[in-house]
Write a protein that binds this DNA or RNA. Structure first.
Length: 223
DNA sequence: GCGACAG
DNA sequence: ATCTTGTCGC
């Protein structure tokens, strides 16, 4: 029940291979304007929220986009469900981010085509993927807060498992586009503020949820 | 064949 | 992700 039509899947896999072929794992970012994008869901609707932060974590601007989901959630194909609304929200940001945190995988993906790669390639923006669970690969459990262990997939380090906060499970950090594996970890650490998720992700998540709640119908008072 | 499986 | 209340702990 979580599968795709074989022909559709074949086409999507081909698209992901094209995305992956364009991914750059070299540092080509700046931290002048860092943003985060995240999605909330309401039935068939995908609500995407994006937030740009100043170097001091001040919110500089926000943008959102709502649309019907094109696909159900299928592991490995998240970019085709959340990619369109996410890119549209980010496109409306001003100033434009020069580095973007995305909720989901980056190159730590079976075809090196996680949501962060997709958004990065489509927009030409440097991206970092932040996920709460591993899709593929594995890492040793980091012992102390701030510590990270390499996420290994097919003998390669594709990201890191980072213990971002006490009492929390480690988060997974991986580059999406135009940033190296090690820089993705380094920058993510810099954007942590005592919470499980780095600020751009946390604020984008909060923003997307606020939009969702503000649109949901108010409960009727029964006479 | 049996699990695992971003959000 | 979403459905959901209180509750244990820093």
């Amino acid at each position: 029940m979580n599968s795709l039509d074989p022909d559709l899947e074949k086409r999507l896999v081909e698209m992901q291979r094209r995305i992956a072929s364009r991914v750059v794992l070299q540092d080509q970012f700046s931290e002048e304007a860092v943003a985060g994008v995240d999605q909330a869901f309401s039935g068939e609707l995908v609500i995407s929220g994006a937030v740009v932060l100043s170097p001091s974590f001040r919110v500089l601007c926000t943008a959102s986009h709502i649309m019907r989901a094109a696909l159900p959630y299928v592991p490995g194909f998240l970019c085709f469900r959340e990619g369109a609304p996410a890119t549209k929200a980010v496109r409306d940001l001003d100033p434009k981010p020069m580095l973007l945190f995305v909720d989901g995988c980056g190159v730590n993906h079976p075809r090196m085509a996680g949501l962060a790669c997709y958004v990065g390639i489509i927009l030409g923006v440097p991206t970092i993927g932040i996920s709460k669970d591993v899709l593929c690969g594995s890492f040793k459990k980091p012992e102390n807060v701030g510590e990270a262990e390499p996420l290994i997939y097919r003998e390669k380090t594709v990201g890191y498992g980072l213990l971002s906060r006490k009492g929390c499970r480690p988060i997974v950090v991986a580059p999406g586009h135009r940033i190296s594996v090690d820089s993705a970890l380094e920058v993510t650490r810099r954007y942590l503020k005592g919470q499980k998720l780095p600020e751009p992700c946390r604020l984008a998540h909060e923003y997307a949820n606020k939009i969702k709640i503000s649109r949901s119908p108010e409960p009727e008072a029964s006479p």
